[in-house]
Design a protein around this nucleic acid. Sequence first.
DNA 1: CTGAAAGCGCTTACAG
DNA 2: CTGAAAGCGCTTACAG
Lengths: 351, 351
Amino acid sequence: MTSRKKASTVKLEDVAKRAKVSIATASIVINTPESKRVSEPTRKRVLEAVEALNYRPASYAQQMRGKNPAILGLIIPDLMNQFYPEVTCGFSDTANQLGYNVILLNSRNEVAQEEFFTDTLISMRVAGVAICGANSENQEESQREKALVKRLISQGISVVRLDRYDDDPICPYVGIDNYQASFCMTEQLILEGGHKKIALFVPYQRVYIQEERCRGYRDAMEKYGLLPSIFETDQIHFTDINEKMKALFLGNQRFTALFNAASDIGAIECIKQAASLGLRVPQDLSIAGFDDIYLANIVNPSLTTICQPKYDIGKTAMQMLARMISNEDLEEKNILLPFHYIKRNSTIAME
Amino acid sequence: MTSRKKASTVKLEDVAKRAKVSIATASIVINTPESKRVSEPTRKRVLEAVEALNYRPASYAQQMRGKNPAILGLIIPDLMNQFYPEVTCGFSDTANQLGYNVILLNSRNEVAQEEFFTDTLISMRVAGVAICGANSENQEESQREKALVKRLISQGISVVRLDRYDDDPICPYVGIDNYQASFCMTEQLILEGGHKKIALFVPYQRVYIQEERCRGYRDAMEKYGLLPSIFETDQIHFTDINEKMKALFLGNQRFTALFNAASDIGAIECIKQAASLGLRVPQDLSIAGFDDIYLANIVNPSLTTICQPKYDIGKTAMQMLARMISNEDLEEKNILLPFHYIKRNSTIAME
DNA sequence: CTGAAAGCGCTTACAG
DNA sequence: CTGAAAGCGCTTACAG
């Protein structure tokens, strides 16, 4: 990495020399096209030189002079989960429109990776970063993640969190109201589906938004006088999904619906495991997910789920970041976007 | 973008001041830990100051001093197509391991976007770029794309192309042998499936790799004395897939197999359209794709296809780039990775 | 209308 | 063992 400088690379000096002007004049022609302080012929000569040499100012030199770099970091946990490419597109399309470039950092759900990325981002003195934290597996990791956000902020870098946020508002965030969304799904299962025994699957690590989903489920169940049954499962590697699903039919338990509130990916895994347990979905067991990734509509049976506005989450996060960077006031520090319930074929009304 | 500098941001001077040494000494402690020219107590004071202030050198200043930036560009046509997140992961995981960061540029299949990105990348004086070109719709666009690669190279930036390459080798590339892959699929359809009337769908814009796939198909058909039938279709927006599929059954034509050589996405679109035409897949029509994206195994019927080593394509491209950047010799300028044929349920053997 | 000069935050010879 | 100084490629007051 520390190898020597590449041979060629056109600089302002070359342009100035070719146009037979000082570098100051060349700089002004390039940077302030509307300035009247350069004569037409001179301006033309400079522009021709720029064209001929294909000159582009080195952004690092401009940055050194105090210009804010038009670079942003976007940290996501897993690009292979279809949720994130869409968030990423929303974010980077908008970033490009606003003149920013984005460095995509794929943490693979590892806080250590995020910490490493944070150092780099600070070195680059990026203008801002949007972070969707790793699905940390324990309390200590969550703390480290918080520390890293604080570190970015302390270095003067604007930060927004997306999708996964917190009750402790160390920075603005954008997502959906996970409590309401979970309540909504549960209520649909009860009212529209007539289900009474509904199980909830959540990850072991109860990050805040998962806690919210638990709360939504619990409140909905209690509202209709039903007994909540929450199962913690491994939603990262799915090692115990099979076992947990068996538990739904142990003894005289007869769950008729399963709401995997962690993600669609997890719910689809449940559908797969159901087949291996000889269960028909939805006839023997209704299964619902959370996210509405593209796959949800493709799998068989197609998945009933909560649609998160993925593209808009990315887009909104970018817009907030842009405002923060230019020190504009945020009307709202936290933005909750609308979600909606989508009924497909993996859930069915009880006879 | 041109707003004023952010308030805080720790610099070497602050560290030096706190440690009561010159900035030269501070720099040496930080950059050459093995150097014996700094006394232990001094070194310790500096390191403590670094720690206390959370100092990270500004990479732009280092870049100005001649250090090559550890930034790479990766231009892809469409992050929403599952093919690319996997290539992207292969590329950026490897990049991170080698100490590089990558800027992801999503061209949305627009050459104009690519041109814009190219300017930015040149401004940033990135060390290298990997580009998977837009699916250009005409000859003029292909030319512009080539021009842009040449422009990068002329600015001393290393470039590799991936997936989509060319017969005119303006820079190294990594992909698969598209001729062989297409030949292989066609031969399987003939030999294993007993098909005789096999149609090939390709995009209107015959970029080189598509031309190669045509050639593979044609040669395989001719090897077994069969008549090739190539249909050009809109593989970007799929506007005419339905019409082209109808053509397969016009008059006394009775195609029994369709090989969509453009992509799995296209083949899956064909499966969808088949349903709307009242055709059963594979009973009435066998359909095969190209790529083996994750979706191929999820759709119903699951898709017979050619598996491209997506992750490895990204990884290999990155490794080549790293070598080019450090001026090492490339054993081979172009790398063709192994592909393989995957039989699933969308194709069937004739009775 | 144009140019010489200072300075951004670093690193690296060069003195001491 | 340590520091003063030059210089990387730009931009922006400041002179002329």
